[in-house]
């Protein structure tokens, strides 16, 4: 048994069933003293639900190392309780992560709607599309590209697995820090012009910011 990275899957609908705890406890009995990563699939878990899960897990001497889920609500809730959380994509993401490196445009994109606020952290194994602002103090990262339909005022990290072709685009690019693959850059000091979307990418070993031209996508 792989004791470091056991995954427990709570199935959809179980949380609404009053008996889900029993099933969950039975699973825990078999895995005593392990580090767990909880995969809650697409179920929305509130902070309260997660606290309950943590309590149960603690009873069985297990430790939660992180959460993964395809529900943004669950991700944000577990984030706010201080757990490492990752967006999962519902299909098997292992195959797509190889494809990511070859062709970014065909990889999965995770979509988040709403403001990402200070202290929150979004992570995606594919691309990340955010409809809303990324506020100062928030962090977003993706293995692929990051596109923000709003202001980027926090930290963004594209190409987390080393893809240096990844880009970060936003309607207003005023980040605290930008990271692409292994390069790190501080955000620009001067305010950008309003009404011009911009893109950050790596050009000759430096992160540069250029106006976002839609014609680039046609080629």
């Amino acid at each position: 048994m792989n004791s470091n990275n056991q995954k427990i899957i709570i199935n959809i609908g179980d949380i609404n069933d009053p008996k889900w705890k029993i099933g969950f406890k039975n699973k825990l009995k078999m895995l005593r003293s392990n580090n767990l990563e909880i995969d809650s699939e697409n179920i929305d878990l509130s902070c309260k639900d997660i606290s309950e899960i943590i309590e149960i897990v603690n009873q069985y001497d297990c430790k939660i190392t992180g959460f993964c889920s395809s529900s943004p609500k669950t991700i944000v809730s577990s984030q706010s309780l201080g757990y490492k959380s990752q967006f999962s994509i519902e299909n098997n993401s292992k195959n797509t992560s190889d494809a990511n490196k070859k062709n970014l445009t065909f990889s999965k994109t995770h979509f988040h709607q709403g403001t990402v606020r200070s202290g929150e952290y979004l992570e995606s194994p594919g691309n990340l599309l955010i409809l809303g602002d990324v506020n100062p103090g928030a962090k977003v990262s993706a293995e692929g590209n990051i596109i923000i339909w709003g202001k980027l005022l926090g930290i963004a990290h594209a190409g987390t697995k080393g893809n240096s072709k990844a880009t970060i685009s936003a309607l207003q690019l005023r980040p605290v820090q930008l990271r692409i693959a292994k390069k790190i850059a501080r955000g620009p000091k001067e305010k950008p012009q309003l009404g011009h979307a911009e893109q950050a990418k790596i050009d000759s070993e430096e992160i540069i910011i250029t106006p976002l031209l839609t014609t680039q996508f046609n080629s």
Binding site: C47, K48, S80, R117, S118, G119
Partner: peptide, 15 residues
């Protein structure tokens, strides 16, 4: 403002 932003995020996750 930064702290308020953090709090608003928490309020949102608790509906």
């Amino acid at each position: 403002v930064r702290d308020a932003d953090r709090v608003i995020g928490l309020l949102n996750t608790n509906s």
